[in-house]
Amino acid sequence: MNPFALTGSVAIDAVRETGRIADFGARGAFAWVTGPFYWRAFFSALGRIGFASLPVVGLTAIFTGAALALNIYDGSLRFNAETFLPQILGVSIVRELGPVLAALMVAGRCSSAMAAEIGTMRVTEQIDAMSTLAVDPFKYLIAPRVLATTVALPFLVLIADIIGVYGGYLVAVYALDFSGPIFVTNIAEFLENRDVVSGLIKAAVFGFLISVMGCYYGYNSRGGAQGVGSATRTAVVAAAVVVLASNYFMTSLLVEF
């Protein structure tokens, strides 16, 4: 095939796939509107996705916050700006690192699990069985996961923000001789509502995208164990990539406000 035709067909495939994923996401998000909402499935997903992600998100945040404090201190020393460490740390975590790192951890943890669960259900005909039992798989499997992830991620990010700043606080106070109360006052006075809120808005969008990727690739997996394996792999990679890409576009929109 000549390179132009190849590029063209790859581009067309990519657009088609994007369209299918968008359609899937919309169906997943709004499936419950017309029919019953399965609360039990929703809360069980919320537990697995939100609550169970707390330790890993917390660990990521505290180490990142701590390392960030060291780096900011070292960098800002060069132009004698080290007193701004709390402010820079706060903005970096709340606006950028909290949402992105929490989302990446959840992408790794949950989009893979969703793809594997739903994919296995697909290849063992459990999804077909569900429709013969007059229950819409979109309402029972997809919608609860998508909504749970979209709701859970802002909370996870809020917690990641707090723990991340705390990690920076520990380093600043115990290793870099900052005064604890001043560190806290500086951050509290500097951060604005919109810093935090923009991070939480991003988080909700990330949650939506992550769960749609996990569900989409699982729902469309084919073949046996191998198909589920490749669906899982694709889901994690796709989830991570859409998080990072959408982060840039959302950030460029959100800094305008």
Binding site: T120, M121, T124, E125, Q126, D128, A129, M130, S131, T132, L133, A134
Partner: peptide, 19 residues
């Protein structure tokens, strides 16, 4: 589809129980 599924039961080849 609803007309069909509302009055149909199916036993799948591999049982297809929800694990």
């Amino acid at each position: 589809r609803r007309y069909m599924t509302n009055q149909t039961g199916m036993l799948f080849q591999g049982a297809a129980l929800f694990d």
